[in-house]
Design a protein around this nucleic acid. Structure first.
Lengths: 234, 234
DNA sequence: TAGTGGTCTAGACCACAGC
DNA sequence: CTGTGGTCTAGACCACTAA
């Protein structure tokens, strides 16, 4: 695989920065200088620099020039995969065990986490890996955005994977906290005081709430790993 | 603020996709068609589409065309900010309380989390918000990558913010788990069984390990929130 | 005010994968 | 084979701002 010119320029700049050769705050050559150096058009240089800007490695200021940015522990790209996929990838068997399922009509609120915006289904269940409880899941599904959920059978297939295939969503918000197993201890087969990782996710399609889900993982059975490394273009 | 042309094209395409008007898998107009429609150069269209590709909203296939991508719950962009910044943003006072500091020479291992690659400093301390413990921090700093750390004073300033200013661009890996306070209960002033969020971060500069840090947050004092609209695929 | 980045044009050639 | 995206050129004008 031979690099395109803009990738080569980008790679050259990036290694100068990552190596520390160009310290934070240092001014990098102007686009017109790089253009002469690489004997290319200005757009090509601009594309390379633009990619590094979006990675947070470079800051640009008009008239002043482009500068190596100060490193920031800022964001990490966190993988939040489908639970079934995680379990199967470990070589274990997977099944979703339905505990309860009820219909909430508009106006009836189970809790405040999911705004009351019409009929919803409330589901409780356990993700089971090789006959051991892996995670507890509490979920609300808005029937306005996901009408088919009223008829879906969630005994074998988890609601999450059903939704993935049936409802296009547009935006989500995650919240990650620690909690004790508490009332979920029985369902999970762990002590009440065991520390658990709790992942909450709200999903919308446009303005319509699609689903709220709260997944609770016993502390010793799951963790989240986030790689923070340079992003690459297509 | 008036939109540039490529932003307008991008916004037009994006709203068609997010609204569901263009369903996943649907083919979108070719670059040359859009070019005629907006009466602009092909690069402008390409820039707009390229941005949506990197957000994961569009997939392109040569000869076949560009298509609306199928949404995937895959990754979220997780904010892992500097602790001092979080506390100050809440309007509280911040201070870092040093508990212990020792020098580990090459070959001596405190634990296995940080490969033995030379002299390291080991630091334990507590981040304090308005005189209440906020988080416990255990950190190892490799002196090869951060030589100045041998002389730095970490009584007031946290090692994390010192490193940000003194060690240039790096790569990091994060791991997020739940645990009980356990031995850290005294330092944090919480019960031993309290569920805590534990964030571990390994940082390298090129091939050199810069730092390993383990931060433990009492469950009721901190959470991580990740906003997500489909983004960067590898 | 001069130099920088920000955007755009109107072409061009190429590689690739569907037809 | 042909249409598509992928990349690049050699200009251009503009907005902003630091000098």
């Amino acid at each position: 695989m031979t690099l395109t010119l803009d990738q080569r320029i980008r790679s050259d700049l990036e290694s100068r920065i990552r190596s520390g050769d160009w310290a934070p705050g240092r001014r990098i050559p102007t686009e017109r200088e790089l253009m002469a150096q690489y004997r290319c058009a200005r757009m090509t240089v601009g594309k390379a620099i633009g990619a590094l800007v979006s990675e947070g490695l470079i800051e640009r200021r008009k008239k002043a020039g482009s500068f190596v940015a100060r490193p920031q522990v800022r964001t990490a790209v966190l993988e939040i995969p489908d639970i079934a996929a995680v379990i199967l990838a470990r070589g274990e068997t997977y099944r979703f065990e339905l505990i309860a399922r009820r219909l909430l009509v508009a106006g009836e609120a189970l809790d405040a986490r999911f705004a009351d915006t019409g009929d919803r289904i409330a589901i409780d269940g356990v993700h089971v890996a090789s006959d051991r409880p892996f995670a507890h899941e509490h979920r609300l599904i808005g029937l306005a955005a996901a009408p088919g959920a009223g008829n879906a059978d969630f005994r074998e297939r988890s609601p999450g994977s059903w939704l993935l295939d049936n409802v296009p969503w547009t935006v989500a918000r995650h919240r990650i906290t620690a909690r004790q197993a508490g009332d979920l201890a029985t369902a999970l087969g762990v002590p009440r005081v065991l520390a658990c990782l709790q992942v909450e996710r709200w999903t919308w399609r446009q303005a319509d709430p699609v689903t709220y889900v709260r997944q609770v993982f016993p502390g010793d059975r799951y963790d989240l790993v986030a790689e923070f490394s340079p992003r690459h273009g297509p």
